[in-house]
Nucleic acid binder design. Structure first.
Lengths: 233, 233
DNA sequence: CGGTTATTTGAAATACGTCAATTCAAGTGG
DNA sequence: CCACTTGAATTGACGTATTTCAAATAACCG
């Protein structure tokens, strides 16, 4: 449960009770193999946290084209907004082998009780997801391929590492990244080579490494979606 | 208030009380001229319904590039999710002269009371917006310019007309459409000419006309975001 | 080790963007 | 009613980013 507690702890300090409450969910741990559809219209799995492995939410068109909406990294969850995945052809797919725990009990507890630290943390997690989606729209609509790749790496650094580390796991195939960034695999590959050649950043063997943070940030154009502001509800 | 009542009425039948409650908001009517920023970090206008004119939510980059996230047509609203516009550089801009009424009182009433017809309608409006955003991501990431334009026209038909009409108002400049669809104005113009030349659809003098619904739907690839499914909360 | 899947590279096609100019539409003031 | 202006739509020519096709490694896995 460590990844979940770390991720939630970014937004809000949890009380000891809340901490235990989250940790207790480890009893619902489940393992899925890569390629499994975790959530779809037919398969109405409830809300889950991912504690190991990577997943994505996506839509596949009839002709095979695919758009990845977002990735789910350890500590993050899916299926929180009752309406979205499942409907509108959106589904959640395990990209690596994945371990999850159920989040339904926590969500219910948080909804019933008074707004506490856990409430704020879960809310912030969802707001961050929303903000990320806005970034994603700008990325797809207005950034060049090079800028998209740079921005993507910066975004992932913020999500996966805390505090920010130069090197972090990135177990995605180039095909998955390309389908997220709206590019062809071939072109993404070339763009990654450019980033590598310029000693800005590289992705190799499931690990991303940032060599030149300043240059990378400059290429990313946008500041990546930060933690959502903690304004009133 | 007619546009708002029509739009809400698509999702759920309102009681006479609810109907009056919505209609009463006409007292808060306000007029804005084209180009006004209705919502931003600095200007914290509350939630509003638009009863006349068109607006958009957007983000402008330092170098002038712009991405439009969504349009707001009469009957729809903005500023509902307390967190988003305002933060993350998102703002809401009046594209034509616009008339609004306040939605804060309605939202508060709906939140306090039991889930009624109005509650469902407002919720559905927001879910539809979410679903539309997913479509938008696919459009930007995976559709060609021709497909994007076709899909956009179909989407607007569903939003603006009820029941579906062949002809409907579309007071957007090609620049605004291009900034929504992630295209240059020049290229959008050419694509619209293609659609016109093929007798599929055309946009002229602030009015969109669909000549060949079947061909247009085929070109759109995606079925446009329908009313969100009315599943449980 | 053999078989499969992912990455990488080259060459050619194409979709889309930029630049620059022209036309068109809609005022506005004389 | 007619210049004159202004902003939007349209078009041509050209450059470039990105895709597609095809093939060759390279990494992974049982």
């Amino acid at each position: 449960m460590a990844p979940v507690l770390r991720r939630l702890g970014r937004f809000s300090r949890l009380t000891a009770d809340e901490f235990d409450q989250v940790a207790a969910q480890v009893a619902t741990r489940r393992r899925w193999r890569a390629g499994t559809v975790l959530l779809a219209e037919a398969r109405a799995t409830g809300p889950h946290f991912v504690i190991a492995g990577w997943a994505c939410s996506q839509r596949v068109l009839r002709d095979g084209r695919r758009q990845i909406f977002d990735f789910v990294v350890p500590g993050e969850g899916f299926g929180f907004e009752a309406a979205l995945p499942g409907s509108a052809g959106v589904n959640v797919l395990a990209l690596t082998s994945v371990e999850t725990v159920e989040a339904g009990a926590l969500l219910a507890a948080v909804r019933g009780g008074p707004p506490g630290g856990l409430w704020r943390a879960i809310r912030a997690l969802r707001l961050e997801e929303e903000a990320r989606r806005m970034d994603h729209l700008v990325r797809l609509g207005r950034l060049t391929a090079y800028e998209r790749a740079a921005h993507f790496i910066v975004e992932m650094q913020r999500r996966v590492t805390v505090p920010e580390a130069r090197s972090f796991p990135m177990p995605l195939t180039q095909e998955a990244m390309a389908d997220a960034l709206g590019l062809s695999v071939v072109h993404l590959n070339r763009v990654l080579r450019q980033l590598r050649g310029a000693h800005v950043a590289e992705i190799r063997g499931g690990v991303a490494t940032i060599h030149d943070p300043k240059a990378l940030a400059a290429a990313a154009v946008l500041a990546p979606a930060a933690e959502a502001p903690s304004g009133p509800a």
